[in-house]
């Protein structure tokens, strides 16, 4: 096989592999950062440590924004928007220091997180 023919075959194969990586980005580049932050925030809410919970929520939001940039080309827009909306609600709940609602919202965030890239 000459080099010209090899390139003709390799080019579409490389392109398809690249597309698959982009499309699988939610599973590949999701990471564990957000999941760890959700667990730590759940512990803070359980202990009703609202100062720590507020700080943790900020770092969770920051981590989530980083993940969005990595997964946006492969993930469903609705999956991303649902989690973002839930985070916004959680912010209000933590400010109101409402433990029950915060735990409900955290469970929902966790559900959305696990669904991304599945």
């Amino acid at each position: 096989m000459n080099s010209e023919k090899a390139v003709a075959y390799l080019l579409p194969i490389v392109a398809i592999i690249l597309f698959l990586v982009v499309m699988l980005s939610p599973s590949i580049f999701k990471g564990q950062g957000v999941y760890q932050e959700i667990n730590r925030l759940t512990q803070d809410v359980n202990k009703e440590d609202w100062n720590s919970a507020n700080a943790r929520l900020l770092s969770l939001d920051k981590e989530w924004q980083k993940v969005i940039n990595r997964i946006q080309f492969g993930a469903e827009r609705e999956e991303i928007n649902s989690l973002s909306r839930s985070l916004a609600r959680l912010k209000g709940i933590i400010n109101a220091e409402d433990k029950d609602s915060a735990l409900i919202e955290l469970a929902e965030i966790n559900h959305y997180w696990l669904a991304i890239g599945r």
Binding site: P12, A15, I16, F19, V22, M23, I68, Q72, F73, R77, I80
Partner: peptide, 24 residues
Amino acid sequence: MNEVSVVIVRSLMAFFTLLIFTRI
């Protein structure tokens, strides 16, 4: 999330995938 950039990337993937598949 910038929807325009997502549409651009997805359009390019669709375009070249279609090109490869139709050649096949």
